[in-house]
Write a protein that binds this DNA or RNA. Structure first.
Length: 605
RNA sequence: CGGGGCGUAGCGCAGCUUGGUAGCGCGUUUGGUUCGGGACCAAAAGGUCGGAGGUUCAAAUCCUCUCGCCCCGACCA
């Protein structure tokens, strides 16, 4: 492919709009890849769209290679479809809703579990048609509360979503087999896109399901925190990350002094109370009240769950849910909790004795002895010298009412759950891919079942697999840029080579550029010829800004020497002269051997 | 949704406190000089000052309402 700058639209600017802050947002705007039309709504200009297509093509190749088949579902979906799975409620405000002229309600698809399940339900009638794995690359809509960071969090964005359907979880044709293939395909996709990423274990979230992994592009600007064990390779996001064995107290520690009430008016926050009482947050007990939203095995007889962590730690809802055996827990409704006897904001672990139906969950870090401060169980009061054994007594030994469990978010330095003695390290990431084992959530809700070979009716088991295509584009920029602009990995660069004409008005130079471009194109290389009548400085700056991996410069001096100037985007020098006859091979070699390798580098490696 | 901030030319901003009908830089157009890392000189085009209402002889400026956008938080495949 050969394009000429003068014929396309690449509106580069020296300055970015003040509202753009993150690197990808600023650079994509400045380099003329995208343009904002509204909050979380962007135009993709020719350069941006080319990158989108390159990423999409890699995704297609890998998905097709892994046995998935592309289709195309509507964006405009009758709201009834979402009522069936209650996701019009679960998704809530996030679901974009519109109405037609007859005032019928529609949703703009945020994901497509419902329509795909409807489709398969109506067309798959026998277990012999399973398994099947279908995907699309489609514009998605989410009414984000706060779109931000350009393409990283949009209200309209491009996503690849795949759904697989199975009779079994295990064995040939089972969900696990496809899940593993998708995992491998995702790994290939993000590798081929030239991204530095980490696959982490994740909670499946409101979409439901039993197991999932997130693919995170490593970037300091990422919104998500991930934790890794450098020894075992275990990696997970904060919501999911387990913590290894921690030191436990005996629950028989001696009190540090008389339990003393302290008047702390209008100070509900840990930090403020700590300052007021002159107690460090890590010596305070933070007691958070949850209520069971949906009972499960093990949560019978429980109405309230009080999770206790150190003041400088954060309670993890997923872990609370697991520890109490419920299917779903939510932060307690403040009114209801007060009515039940909780002094919200001033709760202490003693409530296990005072509020019927309360289960107390103690994080290991609060079971050790020493000085503790806690809520005073009445408004505006805290207590000092809190001692679990003295304040709670024999109830501590009743496993039905008090459990010691990991209920907090993991932190840097916590013991690894997979390798004794190793400590977790943290990093930031941008979620670009997510794969789930959905199970039968949607098939049950929408009545998708088939008869098996024993004529038994079986719910179809599903998996779903998403990739944020436009987000992948942005995260590549987050990860690959410098002070001068974007640095595209060759595989997803809008063009592989930019030919910069020093004398755009010279017919001879234009002809040569076109000839070289033609030769490159024959080798499968995409070329942009900068034939604008601009000063050299402008062209060099723009070439760096848009981030094309290789720049060939055609100027008087080099041409007189029968050479072309070859420069990698990552080079810090002015480039080097390459004989005219070799320049195409140089380019091919650099593209093939890695995104920024010169032929000489490749020979050495 | 809570807190903070911003809407003035394609982009970046000043003007608003103390009302008198809009200005600077970049970019754009024309002419000239330049020509290897965002040139210089000269001239020019381009703005219902987000919108509506109000106060006033007079509103970008003051008042009320409204819409849009950004940041932090809450939330979030």
């Amino acid at each position: 492919m050969v394009h000429r700058w003068s014929e396309t639209l690449i509106p580069t600017t020296r300055e970015a709009p003040a509202e753009a802050e993150s690197p990808s947002h600023v650079l994509l705007l400045r380099a003329g890849f995208i343009r904002k039309l509204g909050a979380g709504i962007y135009d993709f200009l020719p350069l941006g769209f080319r990158v989108l297509r390159k990423i999409s093509e890699i995704v297609r190749q890998e998905m097709d290679g892994a046995g998935a088949h592309e289709l195309h579902l509507p964006v405009l979906l009758p709201i009834e479809l979402y009522k069936g799975t209650k996701r019009d409620q679960d998704y809530g405000e996030l679901l974009f809703k519109i109405s037609d002229r007859k005032d019928a309600q529609y949703a703009l698809g945020p994901t497509h579990e419902e329509p795909i399940t409807e489709l398969v339900g109506g067309s798959v009638t026998s277990y012999k048609q399973l398994p099947v794995n279908l995907y699309q690359i489609q514009t998605k809509f989410r009414d984000e509360a706060r779109p931000r960071s350009g393409l990283l969090r949009c209200r309209e964005f491009l996503m690849k979503d795949a759904y697989s359907f199975h009779l079994n979880v295990e064995g040939p044709g089972g969900l696990n087999e496809t899940y593993d293939r998708m995992y491998a395909a995702y790994t290939n996709i993000f590798k081929r896109c030239g991204l530095d990423f980490t696959a982490v274990e994740a909670e499946s979230g409101p979409i439901g399901g039993s197991a999932s992994h997130e693919f995170m592009v490593n970037a300091p600007s990422g919104e998500d925190t991930i934790l890794k064990c450098p020894v075992s390779g275990y990696a997970a996001n904060v919501e999911k990350c387990e913590i290894g064995q921690r030191a436990l107290g005996t629950l028989t520690e001696t009190p540090t002094g008389e339990l003393t009430e302290v008047h702390t008016p209008g100070l509900p926050g840990i930090d403020e109370v700590g300052k007021f009482m002159k107690v460090k947050p890590d010596r305070m007990l933070k007691s958070i009240v949850f209520q069971i939203a949906e009972h499960g095995e093990g949560s019978a007889g429980i109405s309230w769950v009080v999770a206790v962590v150190r003041g400088n730690h954060e309670v993890n809802e997923g872990k609370v849910k697991a520890a109490c055996g419920a299917k779903k827990v939510v932060l307690a409704d403040e009114k209801a909790a007060r009515a039940a006897g909780f002094a919200i904001g001033y709760v202490s672990p003693r409530t296990v004795n005072t509020v019927p139906g309360t289960l107390l969950l103690l994080d290991p870090d609060v079971t050790t002895g020493g000085f503790w401060a806690s809520g005073g169980d009445r408004a505006d009061y805290h207590v000092k010298h809190f001692n679990l054994r003295r304040e709670i007594g024999a109830t501590l030994d009743d496993a039905a009412r008090v459990r010691i469990a990991d209920v907090r978010n993991a932190l840097e330095g916590d013991p690894s759950p997979r390798s004794a003695g190793a400590a977790l390290v943290t990093g930031r990431g941008i979620e670009v891919g997510h794969i789930f084992k959905l199970g039968t959530k949607y098939s049950d809700a929408m009545g998708l079942s088939v008869l098996d070979d024993k004529q038994q009716k079986r719910s179809v088991i599903m998996g779903c697999y998403g990739i944020g295509v436009s987000r992948t584009l942005a995260s590549s920029v987050e990860q690959n840029h410098d002070a001068n602009g974007i640095i595209w990995p060759a595989a997803i660069a809008p063009y592989h080579v930019i030919i910069t004409l020093m004398k755009a008005d010279s017919q001879e130079h234009r002809d040569l550029a076109r000839t070289i471009a033609g030769e490159l194109a024959q080798r499968g290389i995409d070329v942009l010829i900068d034939d604008r009548d601009e000063r050299p400085g402008v062209k060099f700056k723009d070439a760096d800004l848009i981030g094309v991996p290789i720049r060939l410069t055609l100027g008087e001096k080099s041409l007189a020497a029968g050479a072309v100037e070859f420069r990698l985007r990552t080079a810090d020098d002015k480039g080097e002269l390459v004989p005219r006859g070799e320049v195409v091979n140089w380019c091919v070699s650099a593209i093939v051997h890695g995104r920024n390798a010169r032929p000489s580098d490749a020979a050495q490696s």
